[in-house]
Design a protein around this nucleic acid. Structure first.
Lengths: 139, 139
DNA sequence: TACTAAATAGAAAATATTTCTATTTAAGAG
DNA sequence: CTCTTAAATAGAAATATTTTCTATTTAGTA
């Protein structure tokens, strides 16, 4: 938690109760969450709580490198904790049952990047790598 | 084009003018497109044309393996042609300038898959790999 | 404690997607 | 070629999702 608070302050963002609660929620759940899900949780903790604020907070937490956007194919936004940070390459394993997101600390992207630059003559700038399956508990 | 028509028929889907036009559009543009963009194009070709139909067609073209969903972070759905097919692993290079989508015929996923199964003790089922950058023309 | 920029709620608007029903059409059978 | 039927369609409407806006409140600092 300290780690995340440092990231917040380092980005010049204020440490508000709302943000602390959001970070705590993600730490507790370990899964990716939609703005709506986050809102459901926050409404229980804060009597006054707007969905627009949730959207804004999630985006600012992405920008300061605490959260990352997770791609699902359901027309909703999804976020999860991410130590790698905004603008960098992301590698996530996502459990299709419990939605737990685990970071994959391995990437042989250089090889693929080289392949692409050689074969497509393109300039590679970023990549996202998502792996789906069942986590150790769900399988 | 023949290739795509075969795929359609093979899936028991009808070859309608709408679908032919959608496939032709994707072949011509080479880029990923949102339902809205596809609709804009179809409206020029068909006097009567509904957006719900576009949504349905795009989804059925995904299911028969002609299109794939492309992940962008803008709250819209994105589709592109894809020879790999539904449920299989996808590897795309996407130009951030012209939105051209190129398939990457290279994958050392087995190594990463093995790494994940060994380290996270998870069962890997699918993966998507997206690479962003500038294509040969745009760079 | 006072100040200031940032964060907030809530209403409203804008955007995106899905559902529904009646009508039309593609494709196979005869 | 015509008939039949299941699939595809339009368009209206509903729903869902996200963003914008304004006034108010608050965190962090001096």
């Amino acid at each position: 938690m300290e780690h995340y608070i440092d990231k917040l302050k380092h980005s010049g963002l204020k440490l508000t109760p709302r943000r602390q609660a959001i970070i705590a929620l993600f730490i507790e759940r370990k899964s990716h969450l939609t703005p709506e899900k986050v809102w459901e949780y926050l409404k229980k903790k804060f009597s006054r709580c707007g969905l627009p604020g949730v959207y804004r907070n999630l985006e600012s937490l992405v920008e300061c490198g605490i959260l990352t956007r997770i791609q699902q194919f359901d027309s909703k936004k999804h976020y999860s904790l991410c130590s790698i940070g905004y603008g960098h390459d992301h590698h996530h394993f996502i459990c299709r049952k419990c939605n737990k997101v685990e970071e994959v600390d391995f990437c042989n992207f250089k090889v693929i990047s080289r392949f692409i630059e050689d074969n497509l003559h393109a300039k590679v700038e970023a990549h996202q790598f998502q792996i789906q399956g069942l986590c150790s508990k769900c399988k």
